[in-house]
Amino acid sequence: MVRTFNKSDEKEAIQLYIDIFTREPWNDTLSFEQIELFFNRIQAMNTFLGFVLIESETNKLIGVSLGFVRPWYQGLQYHLDSLYIANQYQGQGLGKEMLTQIEHELKAKDISAIILDTEREQPAEFFYQNNGFVSLDESVLYAKSF
């Protein structure tokens, strides 16, 4: 079952984020406080939109999508910042199902596109390709740290 993210999901979603991204292939070093701050900041955006995937039998949170709605010359688009599924549920089609349900929710809100960025040659890149996302040749992602 996919439903809209709410504040009561936060702690469980943060722990799941840490459990996933501190393992292969990412191996990030993350603290609860650091990810809690990230969650608080993204939720503070007035266009924040998140979703959770709940296992129906146990009512356990097993997937999360965090993002925000932004204007685009062709209407509104959903900037998908993070989408993750619990390690033990990966490879079972649940990410695909979650993404499909999110797309239905977005269409109902008159949001016509999803945009995201991800690292090359990582499982996420192949997941998005397998779910109909295409790399935009005319776009490039830049970053500047200071």
Results as ranks from 00 to 15, higher is better:
K96N: 08
L66T: 08
V140S: 14
N130K: 06
F127T: 04
G50S: 13
E125I: 00
Q92T: 10
L49A: 09
F51Y: 05
I54K: 03
R70K: 14
L141A: 00
G63K: 02
G75T: 08
Q43I: 12
L141K: 03
N131C: 07
Q15C: 05
E33R: 06
L49W: 06
Q92I: 03
I42Q: 08
S8L: 12
S82P: 04
G91M: 03
E138S: 15
I18D: 05
F146S: 13
R3N: 05
L80P: 02
R120N: 04
Y84L: 05
E119A: 03
I115N: 03
Q129P: 13
V69L: 15
R120D: 09
K7E: 15
G50K: 04
K60H: 04
L49F: 02
E103S: 00
D28L: 14
G63L: 06
W72A: 02
D110A: 11
A108D: 10
S56M: 14
I42S: 11
W26V: 09
N40C: 14
I111G: 05
S135P: 07
Q74H: 11
V69T: 06
M45D: 14
G95R: 01
N131M: 10
E10R: 10
E55R: 03
V69I: 14
E97V: 02
K109W: 01
K144A: 11
G95M: 03
T118E: 09
N40E: 15
F48L: 13
E121D: 12
F68W: 15
F68K: 05
F38I: 06
D110C: 03
A44Q: 13
N131Y: 01
N131P: 01
E55M: 05
G67Q: 04
A113D: 10
S8A: 14
G67I: 05
A44D: 14
L16H: 02
V134D: 13
L37K: 15
T47F: 10
V2H: 01
L76D: 09
S8G: 11
G67D: 10
S8N: 14
E97S: 08
L61Q: 11
G50Q: 12
Q129Y: 13
A108F: 01
I62S: 10
I20W: 00
Q122C: 10
Y78M: 07
I115V: 07
S82H: 09
S8P: 06
T100P: 01
F133R: 00
Q43H: 06
S82D: 15
G63Q: 08
S56G: 09
F68I: 08
N27D: 09
Y84W: 06
I18V: 13
S8H: 11
K109H: 06
A108S: 11
I85W: 01
Y142S: 14
S56H: 11
L49N: 11
D110L: 10
E103N: 00
A108R: 03
F146Q: 13
F127I: 06
L16Q: 00
F38V: 09
R41G: 15
A108I: 04
I42E: 13
L106Y: 03
G132K: 03
L76T: 08
V52D: 13
E119P: 07
A143I: 09
T118Y: 01
L30D: 09
